[in-house]
Nucleic acid binder design. Structure first.
Lengths: 235, 235
DNA sequence: TGTGCTCGGATTGTATAAAGTTTCGCCTGT
DNA sequence: ACAGGCGAAACTTTATACAATCCGAGCACA
């Protein structure tokens, strides 16, 4: 019933125009087509989607609340540029919340859900196979959202959506170049644990999965000189 | 540095007009002056704050994202009316997050913070003493926000703000009438544990505090007949 | 008497216009 | 040559006007 409460505000299939804009921009950011710091002009976006600035504005405000867009007064909206500190916070929150989410997901497991999970894994593998990095990164995030939906816990789902979106930016900014293949498919392991209804294993695998992602990041306290300047003077 | 990122979007002392509206309405809801289901007309609010509908609208959208206002298409904005299911989700999330928050708060403890905590406890006691129920309920929520600020974890802080706001509505809706005094001051105990830097005790006290609040609620699956109808047909 | 329909008022959704702010180029003066 | 400042263009912010939708009163009719 809780999920219904939100049906009009952020339903995934909402056909109203502001949702289309929001989802279009979100997808572009999550697929790393829009880089952090990019200016998101209202006219520009409005023309693309054939909408007036009023609608673009509300969409951007929603994205700002989700943390993937920064709105600077009288200057406009920009794709967010999370700091290493933000990154640590995001992953700590994920390590706290996601093990609990898989727990709930196992409570709510059903053949239909297992089907969806399996189908998703197939999509992920396929994207990986054909080297489609953009689809890969998007699907990877959607896997976690799928588990959260499965848990039926609408608050955790909302929180996780924010965390996932930010994670995508963080990975783009701070992933090490020398990351070794990264092919090890943790998601499949998690699904296997869910299928066996083994909460202990599912929690553990989710946790190590998140740790591994974070371990692949390079989160120096002071990243680049320009970044350092921005942080120091931004205060 | 993470806190700075949000400075323009939801700074507590933001002097722009949309923030004033948002905080005014939020305060009214948190102090139980506006009851769940109350219609929040755009013109009405705009006239009160001397603002055009544009500004009121953005404020209401932000409140909707925080979960304390529902916006129904073509019908307007209403003070949210959380279901018992929502209530359980909110408190489960709080039980997950808040113990971790006190942990961090203890890591960041300092004389200045202890002062603020002590000062807050005094305010709470004073409001309780003079029977000011509205101030009491507001300060009670602000205590938890204060601890979250202290933790320095901006993501947890953001999540908690949402959870606190919803909790206030939930308590208003589902608190048992026969609740016995409720005078036991858990907050003081939590502060004492923080002062002693005793994480174990602080976590435990926070957890039992939250459990006790939830135990005072009457969360029948099907509340009233009218509610039941609304839920069943609302799907 | 009660049910169903229609029309009018009220309210929200969207677009556009007016006002304010920032930014950047250009020019002047040293 | 270069620092500083003026000014125009571009953009955001706010207000207002117009269109679309919903709700309810009143009426017709069974």
């Amino acid at each position: 019933m809780a999920a219904k409460t939100r049906q009009k505000s952020d339903a995934p299939d909402a056909s109203d125009r502001v949702s289309r804009i929001r989802e279009g921009v979100t997808a572009a950011i999550l697929e790393h087509r829009l880089l952090p710091g990019t200016k998101l002009g209202e006219d520009e976006i409005g023309e693309i989607y054939g909408a007036s600035r009023t609608l673009v504005r509300t969409a951007l405000q929603q994205l700002a609340h989700e943390g993937i867009v920064n709105i600077e007064k009288n200057r406009g909206a920009f794709v967010a540029h999370p700091t290493p500190g933000d990154a640590r916070e995001v992953f700590e929150a994920r390590r706290l919340i996601e093990p609990t989410i898989v727990d709930h997901a196992i409570d709510a497991v059903s053949p239909a859900w297992l089907d969806r999970l399996g189908q998703h894994l197939a999509e992920e593998r396929e994207a990986e196979l054909r080297g489609d990095a953009r689809a890969s990164v998007r699907l990877s995030g959607e896997f976690h959202k799928l588990v959260a939906e499965m848990s039926g816990h609408s608050i955790y789902l909302g929180f996780l959506k924010e965390l996932i979106a930010r994670s995508s930016l963080i990975i783009l900014l701070y992933r090490r170049h020398d990351t070794p293949a990264c092919g090890t498919d943790h998601h499949a392991g998690i699904v296997a644990a869910i299928r066996k209804r083994d909460k202990q294993a599912a929690r553990a695998q989710m946790l190590s999965h998140l740790r591994e992602i974070e371990a692949e990041l390079f989160l120096k306290d002071t990243a680049a000189d320009e970044l350092r300047l921005a942080d120091v003077l931004g205060a």
